[in-house]
Design a protein around this nucleic acid. Structure first.
Length: 240
DNA sequence: GCGACAG
DNA sequence: ATCTTGTCGC
């Protein structure tokens, strides 16, 4: 497990953070189709927190896109660098995610992160921010519709409906399992929305959430537990 | 002004 | 995000 370094000039206030988003959003690339689903690598990233101890742990898990087998994984631990503020999630998650991605022994290929990309108050959510900073193709898959609206997609896996900010389609509500609540897909960087949805379907052969996020989620939780346990008071009785 | 609000 | 065991169902 490597150590998180907060990037130089990381914003300290919400006002500064919003200014960073307003400046960087011009660098988002939306005219590339992105990787072909089922080819190359797909990497899930996720972050777990222990705010009590001010600890953050990120995980990056690389899957073979065709088999969904784990090819590589890495974790990074450090101090929390920003509070959770709706619309500013990226400033809380990105330093740890960058450290985990840097620790990987191979290229990540397409990155799938929890949360949103262009579906964001200033059209620059976590997935777009991570894409601009790394240059990698990135998509966002969220479990909740945030502030956006959508009509319920059809009941079958594969059905989708626009995720709307007023009249603007900022993403898609995509049904990944028959009769189960959809996930919310949006473009991050260098991937088209249709292709992003195709990737998500390729990553959900068995569960609502993509295998990438499931794997990254369990890994960062496990790593956080170990970090937390190691720094906790020595347990009474048995143990070693 | 107040509430809602990705993780 | 996190608090948290058993339990209903295929």
């Amino acid at each position: 497990m490597t150590t998180v370094r907060t990037p130089a000039g990381w914003p300290a206030t919400e006002e500064e953070a919003r200014a960073v988003q307003d400046e960087l959003r011009a660098r988002v690339v939306i005219d590339e189709p992105g990787p072909v689903p089922g080819t190359g690598h797909v990497t899930g990233v996720d972050v777990a927190y222990d705010d009590e101890r001010d600890v953050v742990v990120a995980a990056a898990v690389v899957l073979d896109a065709a088999s969904l087998d784990v090819v590589a994984e890495a974790t990074a631990a450090g101090r929390v660098s920003f509070p959770y503020v709706p619309g500013l999630l990226a400033f809380r998650e990105i330093p740890a995610v960058l450290a985990a991605l840097d620790a990987l022994p191979c290229p990540p290929g397409l990155v799938v992160c929890d949360g949103y990309g262009l579906a964001h108050p200033r059209r620059f959510g976590l997935a777009s921010h991570l894409g601009v900073l790394t240059g990698l193709p990135v998509i966002g898959v969220a479990k909740n519709p945030f502030t956006f609206t959508y009509d319920d997609p059809g009941p079958r896996r594969g059905s989708s409906a626009p995720l709307l900010a007023g009249e603007e389609e900022v993403g898609r509500a995509l049904r990944t399992r028959d009769g189960v609540k959809p996930v919310f897909v949006s473009v991050g960087h260098r991937v088209a929305l249709d292709n992003a949805c195709a990737h998500v379907l390729a990553l959900t052969p068995a569960y609502r959430l993509p295998e990438t996020t499931r794997r990254a989620d369990s890994l960062c939780r496990r790593a956080l537990q170990e970090t937390t346990t190691r720094h906790a008071p020595a347990p009474r009785g048995a143990g070693g």
